[in-house]
Computed example of a mutant assay.
Amino acid sequence: MSTPTADLSAAGVSIWLDDLSRSRIDSGNLAELIQKRDVVGVTTNPSIFQAAIGNKNDDSYDAPLVALAQNGADVDTAIFEITTTDVRDAADIFRPVFDETDGVDGRVSIEVSPDLAHDTEATIAQAKELWAKVDRPNTLIKIPATLAGLPAISAVLAEGISVNVTLIFSLERYAAVIDAYLTGIREAAANGHDIATIHSVASFFVSRVDTEVDKRLDAIGTPAATALKGKAGLANARLAYELFEKTFAEPRAVELIAAGATVQRPLWASTGVKDPALPDTLYVTELVAPGTVNTMPEKTLEATFDHGVITGDTVTGAYADAHRTFDELAAAGVDLVDVTQVLEDEGVEKFIVSWHDLQATVRDALDAAR
């Protein structure tokens, strides 16, 4: 019998898990999710590593932290060693998937420090350092789509490094991300790299858009505003896919693809439903489109496996409705430009806070070990 996750995969959506920990790797859980839940990749971020390393019920990091303390490692060195080890080990587990899909899936992402989100040169330097340290072809280096991140994306791709562009909220910024990708691939070709081996995804955040927009709709309080709740995130993502289809059909993209370049796939991120009034699989079942990735927390993955109903493509036929939703939001008084800027600023800040919490956790562990 087919399962909803198998149906989702058959519809052209790659299922990635938005989580990673040493215990998940060591217990065999990650390998089991590949076999039983059709998971073909993993994404990580500072919040995920903070939750994993700071989990007092998980002792799998104790021994590595003791060893690092004995070797005199400082906090940032310890974090770098632990996170790159986890990503390397996860990449090894996914290597068969990577080989079977010719490098499309079987990918594991690791993010540059969020403290560098507004520093182009430091982002480029750390991206190279992470790529060299993990030393696996199925790694993706996550770079945020801040204004400083855009030239870093191009520069890192130009070095032959595969990139996961994260924290995309607006269509305007997504267009700039695609441009940065095409620029980077063109430069990589000029630098003599095999562009067929360079992959990228563009992580477009979904649920956070609804959270911010719905808060504003509640403040407006009219019946027309209330009727729009829970619609902005899907509309935004669907219009992103429309932009993706349009841009990668343009001559500059077609020319690179003909020369061997891969398409930068849209990735739906922040797909855990935060509003209990909405279906818990909303950002999975309503964002089914060929050639996309949906990275989901385990709770959403299990909900999809248990009762998700996959009805095929739910994106490309909904463009007109999505444009209408945007028009109605504007008419109701929602400034989507402001919404997406607030979300980008908050997204960077949240990861910075998680990063600093992680530093504090590791510092305490190193002190205790010493």
Rank of each mutant, 00 (worst) to 15 (best):
H307E: 13
A277Y: 11
F305W: 15
A318Q: 13
T262I: 03
T300I: 08
A318E: 15
P266S: 06
L267R: 01
A269R: 04
T271Y: 07
E286A: 06
A269S: 10
V263P: 00
A277H: 13
L282D: 10
G312T: 10
G272C: 07
P290S: 14
L301H: 03
H307F: 04
E298N: 12
Y283T: 12
P290A: 14
L278D: 00
D280C: 07
T271C: 04
L301V: 04
T262P: 00
D321S: 05
T316V: 06
A322R: 05
A322N: 04
T311S: 13
G291I: 14
E298H: 03
G317A: 10
T281L: 02
V293C: 07
A269K: 04
E286K: 14
D280W: 12
A261K: 10
T285W: 10
D321H: 07
T316A: 10
A277K: 15
V263W: 00
E302S: 10
Y319M: 05
V288G: 03
D313Y: 00
A303D: 12
V273P: 04
D275T: 04
L278V: 11
T300L: 04
T311L: 04
L282A: 08
I257H: 01
L282E: 15
A258V: 02
G317Y: 11
A258T: 14
V293R: 00
V284M: 08
L282S: 06
T281V: 12
P266N: 11
D321E: 15
D313W: 00
V273S: 03
I310K: 12
P297K: 01
D280Q: 14
A261M: 02
I310E: 06
T304F: 12
A277F: 01
V284R: 05
L256M: 13
E302W: 13
V263G: 02
V315R: 10
D321C: 01
L301Q: 04
K274P: 04
D321V: 00
T304M: 15
T316W: 00
L267Q: 05
T292A: 06
A258Y: 14
F305T: 13
T292L: 11
N294K: 08
H307M: 12
R265C: 05
